[in-house]
């Protein structure tokens, strides 16, 4: 009886906990709007790149910036 109870409750608890944590930490996965520096001018793109870092973020072959003036570069997530 106890064994059957645990067999049902333990996985259900683990799954609920994991789903809960996934929703609680949702923010770290969000995208932000950016602008790719294409030959035809700034192109709006959705990116998950960060404001700070070392390697400049790219969308395809083009560097991505935070602003439409292409003055504030975005950086790759390295970690």
């Amino acid at each position: 009886m106890k064994s059957n109870f645990l067999k049902l409750v333990l996985p259900a608890f683990a799954i609920l906990l994991a789903v809960g944590i996934a929703f609680a930490t949702e923010e770290s996965n969000l995208m932000q709007p950016g602008y790719a520096d294409t030959p035809s001018g700034p192109l709006p793109v959705q990116t998950d790149c960060l404001d700070e870092g070392q390697i400049q973020c790219k969308a395809g072959a083009y560097f991505v910036y935070k602003d439409i003036d292409l003055s504030d570069p975005l950086y790759e997530r390295e970690e």
């Binding site: 996934a22 930490t25 949702e26 770290s28 790759e76 997530r77 390295e78």
Partner: peptide, 12 residues
């Protein structure tokens, strides 16, 4: 270049 494809707190 090694961009991260991880999600949630693991990306930290």
């Amino acid at each position: 270049s090694i961009p991260c494809s991880c999600g949630g707190v693991i990306s930290a």
